[in-house]
Nucleic acid binder design. Structure first.
Lengths: 361, 361
DNA sequence: GTGAAAGCGCTAACAC
DNA sequence: GTGTTAGCGCTTTCAC
């Protein structure tokens, strides 16, 4: 086995033309065979297949996309990879997209509206057929404006249903927030508190807060203390300090706007010598897998992230097929997973999934 | 504001030609201005910029890539999104890639060699300029064969340094495994055990095991019990049952090949009424963020995942620039994070990063 | 059933 | 400094 002669420059990968030449047929026949469009004689097919094999031909997706005006690319943009909840959704998206023959283009925004625009632009540049994304807030989102202007079909995940915007796949965040307040009230807590990621960076966190406040009020409890922290580098210690210094002192029950934050908060409480749930009750949101393995398990509102991702992908793919399929929001049921000793299968809280037809868009 | 007349079909996004027409210049000038290649008169530039603005022109990455033979796309393929360690690496990759103007194409393999081939093929179809990936095992990897055949520059992450393969960015897994055994021995344990993800699906898990066994032998301990479990849906209960039924019974110290598995194992131990580290010592591997928040914190070997991803991206981008930059492996230092009460900053264990020039490839 | 040829949107010679 | 033009690899009429 001797070394091959050094190539002058990087050899190009074989093109459909090379295949056609080698098989002694036209590029049209090769294309037809490879795409299953149009008939090709048995003899011709065999020759083409042989040439493809010999050359190690791999159709160039760029050329194909440019010509056909469909890239078979789906853009995915999420706020962050640090919080596992988004990875779960991406996993669901990936599975469904792959099954349908789509490849994912990926971007991260860091919970930042300007970065959302940048990321969306980057994915749009490659002419993604559609996009699945989570934005800070759909209402005034420039990223969504860009998507609409480009008329690129898209589906939101986690975001709140928003009139005039694309359909979203999520849970009823407000109802869930209310359920947490009721839960705390039922346990006899009166001093509630919420530690939330920056409300300006998350419409769903804002919805959870609304529900939580409403639920507390409905239960006849005093208004909960509320503190915002950064999403990316939460500082729950400072939030707890502020709460402790406030009127009423530290709440006996804390609702954290996501599990990631809840776990950090429990650590901060431990540093103050406070046990969970003994001294302070803490409930998170998302249902990330690791929460169930904590001791004791993290109480949380579980949203079916992988399924949400899957459903978002299925909806998007359906949109890409039909001429102008007007899908509505999909509100999946959440479940409450209590902290208690290894809970059995939790029971669905909000019943069957709701399908809603969008009036707008 | 009246409705616009219904379009006959989906309007195309403006092309460089539209811009040129509107600005009354040639497409060449537009291209030159947009790419900063070649001079353009001030007056012309202004007209072009105006036209770009008016039309909302966004250069088509497909056309650009097809012509220039450089896609500015980087392919990323990881085994799974369930284990947060990979998300951490992707975050590091994304940051560096974005800064250099690259967009990520994303694929998942599920720790399966055949799926690796499929995923790599999918990304190769879009002519990624390069790739960053983790494979089950580099040595016989068909996915890497495909990458080499296509002459697409690539860098491995997490994988073991492997002669004849692309450079990898990782830690010294074998040394780390040895360190864990030494640690257990130092604590006075004699019956060690390891619960590892399927060895066939992870060359680094195999390396960790080798080091662990060697370390145990060097410490004069009996050979540790070893059990393999699935990566995606680990069943630590079964592994513990098997160990308990084996000679010597359940080990007093368990090394899990990754944190994800360690957390699940601790849960399984809890179900048997065994506390960690009181009854059984458990050490994981990876240093995923959540481990530090467990009570007590998960003992683990911390590898700098985000930095590894970042370094892999930087290396790849360097390769793309230079003609034939022959980078070597990059072995970053790992740290041991003990379980104890909130540890301070851990001290590096294996010293300065090692740079190695590859003999082969 | 098969082939010739026209582009998809863009960049990069190459003229001027 | 600016324009013309030839493709990059592919799909898809349109003839035959």
């Amino acid at each position: 086995m001797t070394d091959p002669p050094p190539e002058v420059s990087r050899p190009m990968s074989p093109t459909i033309r090379d295949v056609a030449l080698k098989a002694g047929v036209s590029v049209a026949s090769v294309s037809r065979l490879l795409n299953g469009t149009g008939r090709v004689g048995a003899e011709t097919a065999a020759r083409i297949r042989q040439a493809v094999e010999d050359l190690g031909f791999r159709p160039n997706g760029l050329g194909r996309s440019l010509k056909s005006q469909r890239s078979r690319l789906i853009g995915v943009m999420i706020p962050s990879l640090a919080n596992p909840v988004f990875a779960d959704a991406v996993a669901g998206i990936e599975t469904a997209a792959r099954a349908a023959g789509f490849t994912l283009l990926f971007g991260v925004s860091g919970y930042h509206a300007e970065e959302e625009v940048r990321a969306v632009e980057a994915l749009l540049a490659y002419r993604v057929d559609g996009m699945i994304l989570t934005v800070t807030a759909p209402a005034g989102s420039q990223a969504l404006d860009a998507l609409e202007a480009a008329r690129v079909p898209h589906v939101l995940v986690y975001n709140q249903p928003t009139p005039g915007r694309a359909p979203t796949v999520t849970v009823d965040n407000e109802d869930a927030g209310r359920a947490v307040a009721r839960h705390f009230a039922g346990l006899g807590h009166r001093r509630l508190g919420m530690i939330t990621g920056a409300l300006g960076g998350s419409d769903r966190a804002a919805a959870r807060l609304r529900g939580f406040l409403a639920g507390a009020a409905e239960a006849g409890l005093p208004a909960p203390a509320v503190r915002e922290v950064e999403f990316e580098t939460p500082d729950p210690d400072a939030a707890l300090d502020a709460m402790a210094a406030g009127p009423g002192g530290l709440p006996t029950a804390l609702f954290c706007s996501n599990d990631w934050l809840a776990i950090a908060t429990i650590g901060a409480l431990a540093r103050r010598g406070l046990a969970v749930p003994g001294d302070v009750a803490v409930t998170g949101f998302d249902g990330i897998a690791v929460g169930a393995h904590l001791t004791p398990p993290l109480a949380t509102i579980v949203q079916p992230s992988a399924e949400m991702g899957r459903q978002a992908a299925l909806r998007l793919i359906a949109m890409l097929g039909e001429a102008e399929g007007q899908a509505g929001d999909l509100i999946l049921p959440f479940t409450f997973r209590p902290s208690g000793p290894q809970a059995g299968p939790a029971s669905p809280h909000s019943g069957r999934p709701r399908e809603e037809r969008a009036d707008t868009m």
